[in-house]
Design a protein around this nucleic acid. Structure first.
Length: 285
DNA sequence: ACAACCTCCTGGGGGC
DNA sequence: TGCCCCCAGGAGGTTG
């Protein structure tokens, strides 16, 4: 479900409930998600104040007042909801309750916000580590640059892809190359850049890589603006659905006409490494 | 080292 | 209606 724009939307929704407030209660309802919770996870959250809520790629990073960082990855179906919060204009909202059987973490914050983490497939995970260990943590150690950040630029991408034989689609899904893209935004960006998903990474000209960088940035920025994409279960913390799925040009549009002006091609679908790829064979080369 | 799988897990949708 | 198969936003681990 959640790629960078969805995680950023969740971050922006959670921030008013978390930042500057203390965690009054915390409870996990099972021992693990994708991985076990760290030792004494809930107990170590209780009493802490959240100083800042950041994001790195698809990870949420809550910086706590004791120097620890509480990490959440949403996996495929992970969802944070805010329930029963204050009902004041501009404050929090009330999310539709999700299936309680899949509610795995519950927090109560100062000022009355109740936060629930719900994840039917349990591909999500959480961790709690010292801020000083963040860079060396296995999740982040080999991670590539933020696609919307200053270090994602042509010289970097040229170097990262040079001599790579993998198809460009696979390379962009590799979080070591660039961190935060997933299946949807990769295929959308490749379509905008006019690059075929199967194109060998190391054989794309500088000019076309420059166009790809611009396409990645544009699609992510537009998707954040739209509150992400909702296919089935993704929602923001207040239950709101994203709307970027209405602007997909290729994703899940097999057989439909290409959106590129004067192209007239038809969108194709193929499966590579178990993941669906959508593209227009006419304008993506 | 690299690329192409398989896997974890649940639920929704389509076909019969 | 029911059942079975396929599919899904991620990504670590295993093969070859």
């Amino acid at each position: 479900m959640p790629e960078l724009p969805e995680v950023e939307t969740v971050r922006r929704g959670l921030a008013p409930a978390l930042v500057g407030r203390r965690i009054l209660r915390a409870r996990t309802k099972r021992a693990d998600l994708r991985f076990p919770f760290p030792p004494r996870f809930a107990a170590r959250l209780i009493g802490r104040r959240v100083d800042a809520l950041g994001r790195r790629a698809k990870y949420l990073l809550a910086h706590l007042d004791d120097g620890a960082v509480w990490i959440t990855h949403l996996g495929m179906t992970g969802r944070w909801s805010i329930l029963g919060a204050k009902r004041q204009p501009g404050d929090f909202y009330y999310a539709e309750p999700t299936n309680p059987a899949h509610t795995h973490v519950v927090l109560e914050m100062e000022e009355g916000a109740r936060l629930e983490f719900n994840d039917p497939r349990r591909f999500g995970y959480m961790d709690l580590i010292a801020e000083s260990e963040l860079e060396s943590h296995p999740f982040f150690k080999a991670m590539g640059p933020e696609p919307l950040g200053n270090s994602f630029h042509l010289p970097y991408l040229q170097k990262a892809l040079a001599s790579k034989k993998a198809p460009i689609k696979a390379a962009l899904l590799d979080q070591r190359v660039v961190a935060g893209l997933g299946n949807i935004y990769v295929v959308e960006a490749l379509h905008r850049a006019g690059i075929a998903p199967a194109k060998v990474s190391g054989r794309i000209s500088a000019q076309r890589l420059e166009k790809l960088i611009r396409a990645i940035r544009a699609v992510l920025e537009e998707a954040i603006e739209a509150g992400g994409s909702t296919l089935s279960d993704y929602a923001a913390v207040d239950g709101a659905q994203g709307s970027f799925q209405q602007r997909f040009r290729v994703y899940d549009r097999e057989g439909e006409g290409c959106a590129t002006p004067d192209c007239g091609g038809a969108i194709k679908r193929a499966v590579h490494s178990g993941r669906s790829t959508f593209w227009c064979p006419r304008c993506q080369r």
